[in-house]
Structures are given as structure tokens and as C-alpha cells.
Amino acid sequence: MIEVDELTKVYRVPKKTPGLWGSLRAVFRRRYDEVRAVDGVSFRIDAGERVGFLGPNGAGKTTTLKMLAGLLVPTSGNVKVAGFVPSERRAAYLSRITLVMGQKQQLLWDLPPTETFELNRAVFGIDRATFRKTLDELVGLLEIGSLLDRPVRNLSLGERMKCELAAALLHRPEVLFLDEPTIGLDVTMQAVVRRFIARWNEQTGATVLLTSHYMADIAALCARVVVVSQGRVSYDGALDELVRRYAPDRRVIVQSTREPTAEELQEAAPFRLREGALEALVPSREVKDVVDRALRTLPVRDLTIEEPRLEDVIARLFEDSVAPVEREAKEPSA
């Protein structure tokens, strides 16, 4: 469904020396920096798959999504989605896809969501019967029946996001590009959106490519992940495998009967105080030793061994592949 080959996007970002004099000079003579936001990315996604697109800020996730959606013209490389070249922006292509951005909204601010829906109905040329049916379905799944007639500006962020999703799916696209659809939402609302995306994917068989900073989103929705950093793919495969490969560790957590002394802590070695408990991240083969030592030296009340958290895994993955200094200016600010 989605084929990406050696995709590259280079932005030219105006370079400005700081201060008034620098600004003045930039008016007459602009100098540009070349920023390789996406640098030779390749992957394939089958129809109906749900794939998580991971990477630190500025890794090139959004730029890639925008090229897939036909908003940006690639500097080089090939993209094919549903048999179309996105950057040609053919009507037949655009009515097969959708792009939802958690940071931007298409809903008309001063009017109720129904007006945006009606607008999209006209723009996408959806006949009224199909429109009615799809809308009913979306309203049911997202539970937005009571919001439809309130001006968008009076809706909460979560309510707005749900309406935003509805507006983006009215034309029943085959491919969903979701760029941080849960950003800023509270935990309950995140779960609602997540559940909705899963149900919609199952009901319509649409292909989903999703980016998110919330690992819970990825864990709940995507069996497969593509990790990009510095504009390149650094991992492509099963999420489980990623966790295994980058996190051979276990978390050993100790609840103590009293505050351990500094000496005791030192003897028990890798334990640190974290959220009121003592915690150690240890490679699997050392777990036994560490537990033995803890039982000997610490005032243990309870001891548990857990899988590492996905956040920790990802953080470690990024640390491995990313030099943090160059991260900042990956995507242009305008």
C-alpha cells in the first residue's frame, strides 16, 4: 500500500546572524543552511497494517508524513501510496487518504462541527446517503452526538480532537496518516482516541501510519514500528523485538521497611530511589545476583521483577543513535 524508497527532503532554512544588524543584513543578502530533514528513508507498509512511526523531535517523522500526504515535494527518492505518486496531488489520490495533525485543526473555529462536516461532504463530493451513514457511524464510535451543534471554540481540546477525526474520515480514506493525534489529551481521552483508531482500522481495513510521543499509543495500536532518527530509519520491525533488542533489562523493584542507609545502598549497588521505591535496571543474566545481594543487604519488605517500560526502551534506543546536539533545527520553523 505504501512504498517509500530512498526518500530525502532537504530544507533551505534562512540563516540569520543574531541582533538588529544581522536582521538588516538578512534582508538584502539571505544565506541559507541546508537541512536534511529526511535522508534516505525506505520502508513498505501493507494494506490494513497499523504501523507506529517513532523518533525523537525533529527526526523527520512529520516531514515524511507530509511527503506521503502530498503536501511536500521530495527532494529525491520515490514514494508510492495506493499506486499514486503523492506529490502529484491528484484528486483521486487525495480522496483516498487523510492526514490528521494533533497540532493543527481544520474545523471552522466559529461554527459548529457540522458545518465543517458539510463542507468536507461538498469538497469530497460524498453523496448524502453515504455521508449520513458514515457520519452516524463516526458519531457513534466517537460519542460526539451532543457536540455537533456547539461552536468549535466552545469545545474542549479532547472534544475538538474527536470532531477533527470525524471530519478527516468522512470520505472513508483507505490510508490514514496520523501525526500525534493524542497530543495534549488527558489519559482517558487518549484511550478513547486510541480505541477509536483501532476499531476504525478493524472495521474499514484502512492502513494506519501513526506517530506519537505517548508510548502507550504505540503499544496499544501498533504491532510494527519504524524508528527514524536523524532522517534515517534505525529500526523497522516488530515492537516486541525492538523491546527485546534494546531492553534486555529487567526492572528489579524493592519496597523497603525503612529508609536504607547510604552504606546499604552502596553495597546493594545499582539501586536508585525512584518514585518512593528502590529500583534497578539490570541485564537478565545478572538478575539473580542483584536480587541475592538486595535480599542480603537491604531491609526488603517486598521485591518484584518487571519488564522495562517502553519509554525507557525508546529513550535508550535514541541515545544509541542520536547525537543530541544537532537535534534542534531539523525542521524549519516556518
Binding site: A69, G70, L71, R89, T98, K104, Q105, N120, F124
Partner: peptide
């Protein structure tokens, strides 16, 4: 936000 305009067929 021109994105949304360009996304329409």
C-alpha cells in the same frame, strides 16, 4: 494550515 487546503481533492 494550508495543509488542509492542499489535502482536499
Amino acid at each position: 494550515t494550508l495543509d488542509f487546503v492542499l489535502l482536499k481533492p
